[in-house]
Amino acid sequence: MERVIEAEQADFASEGISLGNASAGSPSMTSRAYAALKQDIISGALHPGAKLKIEQLRERYDVGTSPIREALSLLTSDHFVERIDQRGFRVSKASTAEFAELLKTRCWLEERALRESIANGSQAWEEQVVLANYRLSRIPRSQAADHFVANAEWEAAHKLFHMTLIAECGSTMLLKFCDQLYDQNVRYRQLSGTQAYPNRDVAEEHSAICDAVLARDADLASQRLMEHYQQTSIYLADSL
């Protein structure tokens, strides 16, 4: 499980996000281009349907043609980018129908992954879950007190918490799919413009999930995780 967490931290490090003991090594040009492009797509800086021209991307990210092409191919596999026949690439489009499918698929996969982790997880995994939730609870979701300003540190800790919950599922392929769906969900959250959730205590929802996991109550933990995702979807659906 530690290898999964270390890999997750390395992903954040490659995107310029520090998680304390994450690796500080310099990523390759392709990795750098991939991380920068992906971040701009997730954040909405590159809009859905926008054409991705190689020359413009070279200048934007200060890397060569080959790393850009390789990054675009990787992002096509991740469904963040679409290939337009022989005319190049564009940012994948977004729709309410796709978001509904994304949510349904994410719930299917993460429920199975969570149940497997609860069944197979060690005491060390439990400690990682507690630590991830504690760290997340200590980071403000907004950088400003009087209005919402997204906090990249919170976003990184939030992903780490959710991926730690399912880290002991025993399937690297399942973890990869869940990781991709998580990032796709963040993209929709950014596109909707809905970042703050009035009358909702997200930190308490995380702690409730954590408590059920520590109690090894797979039914309750799954129920709370699914409700957590459904609550977010209610806020997003009206804004897409």
Rank of each mutant, 00 (worst) to 15 (best):
160 L>G: 02
179 D>A: 09
158 H>F: 11
170 G>Y: 00
202 V>G: 09
168 E>S: 15
182 Y>W: 09
202 V>N: 08
161 F>E: 03
183 D>S: 12
191 L>T: 01
175 L>E: 05
211 D>F: 10
212 A>R: 02
185 N>C: 10
205 E>G: 12
219 D>W: 11
161 F>Y: 12
215 A>L: 13
151 N>L: 08
149 V>T: 13
195 Q>R: 10
180 Q>V: 06
184 Q>W: 02
190 Q>T: 04
196 A>T: 01
203 A>K: 15
213 V>S: 03
152 A>K: 09
164 T>F: 14
169 C>G: 11
156 A>T: 09
163 M>D: 09
197 Y>A: 06
151 N>G: 01
214 L>D: 12
206 H>L: 01
227 E>I: 10
196 A>N: 04
150 A>E: 11
147 H>R: 15
209 I>C: 08
202 V>D: 04
180 Q>K: 14
181 L>T: 12
175 L>T: 03
194 T>P: 04
161 F>V: 08
208 A>P: 01
181 L>Y: 12
146 D>T: 12
173 M>E: 14
167 A>F: 06
162 H>I: 10
177 F>G: 11
207 S>I: 05
205 E>H: 11
215 A>M: 06
195 Q>E: 08
209 I>W: 06
176 K>S: 13
171 S>Q: 12
196 A>H: 13
226 M>L: 15
146 D>A: 04
192 S>A: 10
196 A>Y: 12
196 A>L: 08
223 Q>M: 10
181 L>S: 03
180 Q>W: 03
207 S>W: 05
173 M>F: 15
152 A>Q: 09
225 L>H: 11
162 H>G: 01
220 L>N: 00
178 C>L: 13
194 T>W: 00
196 A>G: 11
212 A>T: 00
198 P>G: 13
182 Y>H: 13
153 E>A: 08
154 W>F: 11
154 W>Q: 08
154 W>M: 09
199 N>T: 06
221 A>T: 08
220 L>S: 02
186 V>N: 01
205 E>V: 06
225 L>C: 07
220 L>H: 01
198 P>V: 08
176 K>F: 03
212 A>C: 02
161 F>I: 03
227 E>T: 03
220 L>Y: 01
207 S>L: 05
156 A>K: 07
194 T>S: 11
199 N>D: 15
171 S>W: 05
175 L>C: 08
156 A>I: 06
175 L>I: 07
174 L>I: 13
164 T>G: 01
188 Y>H: 10
190 Q>K: 07
150 A>M: 14
168 E>V: 04
